[in-house]
């Protein structure tokens, strides 16, 4: 069986090499070539290098399921923002919402606010999931930090100080949806409700 493992490992590495190999060099195809004129072959990449390259190569921006436009309440006046709902990923234990907050004007602007949390906090705990199938409305888990008796921290992203047109990807971890929920409404204060967002499992 160990030999099988080695064979499988070798196959796996060969497969990786095949899918990452450079295209053939037309200058070197066919005909004799001297050692001096042969292009220098780069050293073969290790598994770690390949994985590093893959992870750093440029994460594709997740596609938006829907885009919302609205404003966040701030002491100096409302700030126009756009929100992309990126994904609602459900499991038996949790539900993870990924969304992107970006400037609604295309220009960098300050967005730090308590309007997505509760007074004095700048997290996004007020973001909610309305699970019609389960007749439940979920909010992100929170937790009680040391030396405190209140749940002053959230398993959700803080509101960034500022956003530009690119935006920042945000996260929020919720309790599980009903097992038969295929869509969910995403509620973000100050913005229209994103209705019937598909749930992936």
């Amino acid at each position: 069986m160990r030999r099988l493992h080695l064979l499988a490992g070798a196959f796996a590495l060969l497969s990786l090499a095949a899918c990452t190999a450079d295209p053939p060099d037309p200058l070197s195809s066919g005909g004799p070539s001297s050692e001096a004129s042969r292009p220098q072959q780069p050293p073969e990449q290790t598994t770690g290098q390949k994985l590093t390259q893959q992870l750093l190569m440029g994460a594709e921006a997740p596609a938006s399921v829907t885009t919302l436009r609205g404003s966040l309440a701030r002491p100096g006046g409302p700030v126009a923002v756009e929100v992309d709902i990126l994904a609602v990923q459900a499991s038996a234990e949790t539900t993870l919402l990924r969304w992107r907050l970006r400037s609604g004007t295309g220009q960098p602007q300050q967005v730090l606010t308590s309007s997505l949390s509760r007074p004095g906090l700048v997290d996004t705990r007020a973001v909610a999931l309305a699970d019609v199938a389960g007749n439940q409305r979920l909010q992100p888990f929170t937790y009680i930090p040391p030396l405190k008796t209140e749940d002053l921290r959230c398993t959700c992203s803080d509101v960034p100080k500022s956003v530009s047109a690119a935006g920042v990807q945000m996260y929020a971890l919720f309790p599980p949806l009903a097992a038969n929920a295929t869509t969910v409404d995403v509620v973000i204060p100050g913005l229209p409700t994103a209705e019937k967002v598909p749930v992936t499992r």
């Binding site: 439940q136 409305r137 979920l138």
Partner: peptide, 13 residues
């Protein structure tokens, strides 16, 4: 002391 209480929030619709 490094395990902080987590709070689960669920409401009706």
């Amino acid at each position: 002391q490094f395990v902080r209480p987590l709070v689960r929030h669920v409401a009706d619709l």
